[in-house]
Write a protein that binds this DNA or RNA. Sequence first.
DNA 1: ATGAAAGCGCTAACAC
DNA 2: GTGTTAGCGCTTTCAT
Lengths: 347, 347
Amino acid sequence: MVRMVDVASHAGVSIKTVSRVLNNEPHVQDSLREKVYASVEKLGYVPSASARSLRSNRTYTFHLISPVIVGNYINTVQAGAISASQKHGYNLLVTPLEVEVLDDSKALNVWCRELIEKKKPDGVILVPPLSDNLRLNEIFNEAGVPISRIGPNKIDDVNNASIIIDDRASAKEATQELIALGHKRIGFVRGIESQGATQERYYGYCDALENAGISIDPTIVKPGVFSFESGMNAGLELLSLNNRPTAIFAANDDMATGVIVSAYRTGIAVPDELSVMGFDDSELAEKIWPALSTIRQPVVDFGKSAVEHLVNRAGKSSMKRPDKQSLTEILDYKIILRGSTAQVPQV
Amino acid sequence: MVRMVDVASHAGVSIKTVSRVLNNEPHVQDSLREKVYASVEKLGYVPSASARSLRSNRTYTFHLISPVIVGNYINTVQAGAISASQKHGYNLLVTPLEVEVLDDSKALNVWCRELIEKKKPDGVILVPPLSDNLRLNEIFNEAGVPISRIGPNKIDDVNNASIIIDDRASAKEATQELIALGHKRIGFVRGIESQGATQERYYGYCDALENAGISIDPTIVKPGVFSFESGMNAGLELLSLNNRPTAIFAANDDMATGVIVSAYRTGIAVPDELSVMGFDDSELAEKIWPALSTIRQPVVDFGKSAVEHLVNRAGKSSMKRPDKQSLTEILDYKIILRGSTAQVPQV
DNA sequence: ATGAAAGCGCTAACAC
DNA sequence: GTGTTAGCGCTTTCAT
């Protein structure tokens, strides 16, 4: 095994200089820097993560925390977070947080303390619905653990990063696509009420209708919980109305898929008799029939940005110089039109 | 911070005794053991992972290696592996292995060496198609890194664990369900040829046909690569035949979903005119219309078992005594019948 | 069966 | 701007 002393003697400098170079610290001559890098390369030196951690009290590990750890959204965030973490010399650990713990303030406290003491994360990434959990944010803040929040409702946090898209604008634009196809009676399926996206997407839907001079009819706005089943139930209700909508916009793809299945079950053809719009562009969207029109979120970039904010906050990272970024990052969305939306049926 | 010395003095023993107790080493009186545990509890002592790693040269980390890191199968394995790892005091890291690297023997070598040197995994979990990669198995074996293989083709490895289901028997049983519904002309869509499951599932299909006295018709056996698109293409081909099958069995759910979409595109009704059977019981299966009949694999348990084999191989683990297990573990499958299969249409 | 002491490889604190 | 030294918290080695 090659140690730091070996690199130092090979490069003809002190061990501390090697340490300085590898940690991107200032006060080292460029000539020495290069010598050190050359020796590192030549000897195939790999720093010992455990020695470094022991001494510096950092673990070079971020935790992606989520109640649900299997699903297109969370695993796509994870993929982005993993590759960005690797790039910056960090590990990414996925840590499930049971919903029962989440609902019990005391248990949540214990859970977080354990995580912080045992795993000593250098940063945590929170996804919905955790991003807006005040208690969670408080605990990590108090413990000095940097947070990156993905898709939070309130982005007024002065300490921690928020990675979002403009839910309202995107939902407005998607609704306008439906209006452009001639739809006037457009239903909406909401998501979990405690999640910011639910309200924002609904507002966007309202914005588009108002702009087009269409009044909002609360009887064709149904609740949902972002699940396939809740979408199917909402669809069944909407499609059984006397004056049923000609288009339904669901606040995520799982629910939109449920709406499509509800149409099959009631014998209503999609898109001939009913247009359906989703939100997310999940794996499902292209695999169902008809393929789902939806809004694509840059979910891989959510994970990537979350990690990069943490890396910057962590300060000096090995081998990489940090660059400054603002705390709130608004990423781009894209409307994807597929087979589930079409011209309004002729009456 | 509570250190081991603190526990030692509180318990009135030497630091080494504490270490022995926490590592489940022999040669400690039971009375002392209990004293130590009591002190650990009382002081809320948490061992320092980095100090332990530095000295013992172990990382308490397993790596789940896969070319694809977003997908129902891999992420479900991951979920099982994470919870089992946590339970035994290990971390689980998901590590992507690019396909280009996999195809280049030299690059693969470098990649593995880097992983082994930099991350020092205490064990690795290989999923298809890596489970059968000889080079990969060799390298880790030589480096003394324990391997758990999920769904390998060859289970004759004497060193490492293999976690499987009986692909052949399950495919046979699923095909028999189709035969029981009156189907005699049953198409088959194969998977990636280098993956053992492809051949085994095909053999199971053949077994069932032969048992029922139905001859195997190679014109209705189509290639595929386990992807939605390949399933759709195979479906389009099969459904354009003059003497088209009344049922199609695809070697996984993604392809079966593609077959269903191909039926929509050619105006053939599922299940009235065509039955479709998948394999995996993935997330998709319940969300498409009609819902997919399929074979459920205990994928969470794949991850769990893989980790438990590694823990046992790692020998002494903190706080937990290992138990002996055989190297090959055959888990149970289950046929799930849903809406995509029905009685053969009357001619 | 138990303990004392050495030292894993690195970075922080301080000297120059 | 660079080097020297101490010591992070644990496990290993060796002594008892």
